[in-house]
Write a protein that binds this DNA or RNA. Structure first.
Lengths: 223, 223
DNA sequence: GAATTTTTTCAGACTATTTTAAGACTATGG
DNA sequence: CCATAGTCTTAAAATAGTCTGAAAAAATTC
C-alpha cells in the first residue's frame, strides 16, 4: 500500500513515516501543500495523510484541487485541536476523515486501515477455487453444504496460496508475508499450518488439495 | 427514514441506493425529473436527492414546483463540477444543500444526516431481524411477547450490528461509531456490551445471536 | 439528594489459536 | 537398499483474545 504524507513539521512527518513503514506501507513524504498536490496528482497513492496548516498551500485547497482533478484517493486530514472548524468536521472540504493532533499510532493506523478498506470494499469479495469458497468477511471456508472457520494464520496462509493458484509459494514467502519478516518463525510453523489446512480440506470433502514441491514450496491442486 | 433518489445515471443511482440501504433507509429511485416531481409531490419522503441534469425536467424546476406545492422536504442537489453555477451554490432554487460529483459515501451520508437533523422530525422506524424487533422510538427490543429496554450504548451497538446484518462489525468500528473516535474506550467495553446484549437475547428467548470472529469482530447470526 | 439506571473497570475464567517438539514418514541420491 | 535431509502429523504447552460477573463510578430520574 502506498501512502503519501504531507506534513511540514518534520519531526511529526518522520514519526508518521516510521509508524507506517513498520506496517510495510510504502511511504512518500513531502513538506508543503504544493508538493503534496503535485505528488497527489500522480494518482499513485492508496491513502494521503494531509496536514491542514501547510506552507505554500493549505490542506483544504490541496484536497479541493485533487477532487477537481478527479483524484478520488481517500484523504485523512490532520488538524490541531484549536484549528478545528466545521470545514474539517463536516468533511465539506472533500476529505474522507480527519484526526486531531495529538493522536496515538494505533488511532492513525486504524483510520488508515478504515479508509483503505472503505476504498477497497469492492475487493472484499469471496475467493473461489475448485469447489472451495473462502469468505473474506467472515474468515470461513465453504465447500458444498459444509463450512469451517479458519484461524487468523490459517486464513492468511490459504489466502496467499489462493493468490497464486498456479504458481508455487515458498515457505520463506509464507513466513515473511504471514508471520512478518522480523518474526522468528521456522519452516515447521508453515508445515504445521499446511497440515491444518489439509485436514480442513479433507473434512470439507473438497477435491482441492495442497501439493508439496520438495525444497521449493506449496501450491494448490485439484484432484 | 424514506429517501427519494432522482438521478438518470443508473449506475450512480444504484450506488446511492445501496449506500443508503446499508443505513437501512427506505429508498425509492426514479430516473427523470417528471417522475421525481410526481413522487416528490406525494410528500412521503424525509429527504430527496436530486440531480441537476435530468431528462424531461431539470432539477431546479423540480424543486421549484415542489416548493410551489408547499412540499418542504429537504432537497440535496447533485451536480457535476463543471455544471456548477450560482444557482446551485446560492441554493436560490429552493434546495437545502448541494454536492458536487464525485463524492464519497461518507459525505453523502453526512449531508443527508445533517439535512434530516435540520428538519428535526426524523421518522423512527422499527428494525426487524430474525424474531427480534428493535423499536427505535422507545429504544426497546421485542421478541414475541417479551421485551426489554436497552441502554443508550446497548442500543447503538445493536443498531450498528443490525446495519450490517451480513457483514462483520469490528470492535474498532464499534468504538469509533458508538463511543466516538476521540474516546478512550477499550475493546473490553465493547465486549461487555456484546455480553449484555447476548444476555438480553437469551432472556427474550430469541433465536438471534451474536457471533464472534476472533480478531475480526462480531456479526448477527440466526440459530 | 436518594434511588435507579447506565457505564466503566477489573480480575479471573474460559477458549481458540499458535508455537513447540518429537517421532513418523517419504523422496532422492549414492 | 541405505542414509539423509526434508516433510508430515500430532499432542501438549504456551499465548493471546474473549467472556462474564461483580463492584465501583457516573449519569439520570424521581
Amino acid at each position: 500500500m502506498r501512502v503519501l504524507i504531507v506534513e511540514d513539521e518534520k519531526r511529526l512527518a518522520q514519526a508518521l513515516g516510521q509508524i507506517m513503514e513498520e506496517q510495510r506501507y510504502n511511504v512518500d513524504m513531502v513538506y508543503d501543500g504544493q508538493d503534496g498536490l503535485d505528488y497527489g496528482l500522480s494518482g499513485q497513492y492508496d491513502v494521503i495523510v494531509l496536514d491542514v496548516m501547510l506552507p505554500k498551500m493549505d490542506g483544504f485547497s490541496v484536497v479541493k484541487k485533487l477532487r477537481e482533478n478527479n483524484i478520488s484517493v481517500p484523504v485523512l486530514m490532520l488538524t490541531a485541536r484549536d484549528e478545528i472548524s466545521d470545514k474539517v468536521t463536516g468533511l465539506d472540504c472533500g476529505a474522507d476523515d480527519y484526526m486531531t493532533k495529538p493522536f496515538s499510532p494505533e488511532e492513525l493506523l486504524a483510520r488508515i486501515r478504515a479508509l483503505s478498506r472503505r476504498q477497497g470494499d469492492v475487493v472484499l469479495e469471496d475467493i473461489h477455487w475448485a469447489d472451495l469458497t473462502l469468505k473474506l468477511s467472515s474468515r470461513t471456508l465453504h465447500c458444498g453444504a459444509k463450512s469451517v472457520s479458519l484461524g487468523f494464520k490459517e486464513f492468511e496462509v490459504l489466502k496467499l496460496l489462493l493468490a497464486n493458484p498456479k504458481g508455487i509459494v515458498s515457505k520463506e514467502e509464507l513466513i515473511v508475508k504471514v508471520w512478518g519478516s522480523d518474526s522468528n518463525a521456522e519452516d515447521n510453523n508453515v508445515e504445521a499450518y499446511i497440515s491444518f489446512l489439509r485436514k480442513k480440506f479433507f473434512y470439507l470433502g473438497s477435491r482441492a488439495g495442497i501439493g508439496t514441491v520438495r525444497k521449493v514450496g506449496y501450491h494448490l491442486e485439484e484432484n
